[in-house]
Simulated assay, not measured.
Amino acid sequence: EEFLAACETDGVRAKRIAVDYASHSAQVELLREELDALLAPIAPREAAVPFLSTVTGEWVEGPELDGGYWFRNLRRTVELERATRTLLDQGFGVFIESSPHPVLTVGLQETVEDAGREAAVLGSLRRNEG
């Protein structure tokens, strides 16, 4: 509460997220058994669309996107900058964040600018806007 109040005083946008663990941290280990059980039915197939993983930083074919992959996705550090630079280096110039609140577009744009490239960075959705 003190941190949120300090942010508000300083004009920094901050929001409490209603979760009982911190994604991409060691706290996720507490959920491993539950997630293993919940994700076990996932049966991935060949990807119809090219997919660059922010977990591995490499292109994936699809079958490796099983429950274990998605656990690692939640547990490990997200390599968004590395993946963005890989895509920029391979000639990609349009980045679309598909989420209810496109908070990553700022980081994507900063990476594009730092790389000295030009690219379109867009959000596709806005919470409560249909």
Rank of each mutant, 00 (worst) to 15 (best):
E1T: 14
E1K: 15
E2G: 03
L4F: 02
L4H: 02
A5G: 09
A6D: 12
C7T: 07
D10A: 15
G11K: 05
V12T: 03
R13V: 06
R13F: 07
A14E: 13
K15Y: 09
A18Y: 15
V19Y: 10
D20L: 03
Y21A: 04
S23T: 13
S23L: 06
S25V: 08
Q27P: 03
V28I: 07
E29A: 12
R32M: 03
E33H: 09
L35V: 11
P41T: 08
R45E: 15
R45F: 15
R45K: 15
A47F: 14
A48M: 15
P50C: 10
P50H: 04
V55R: 05
G57E: 11
E58P: 13
E58W: 12
W59N: 08
G62H: 08
E64Y: 00
W70E: 04
W70N: 08
R72P: 15
T77I: 12
T77D: 09
E79V: 06
L80M: 03
E81Q: 13
E81T: 07
R82P: 08
A83C: 03
T84A: 13
L88F: 01
D89C: 11
G91S: 12
G93F: 07
G93T: 08
V94K: 01
V94W: 04
V94H: 02
S98G: 11
P100V: 07
P102A: 12
P102C: 09
L104K: 05
T105D: 05
T105R: 08
V106P: 09
V106G: 11
G107C: 02
L108S: 01
L108H: 00
Q109P: 11
Q109L: 13
T111Y: 01
E113K: 02
E113I: 01
A115T: 00
V121M: 07
L122K: 03
R126H: 12
R127F: 09
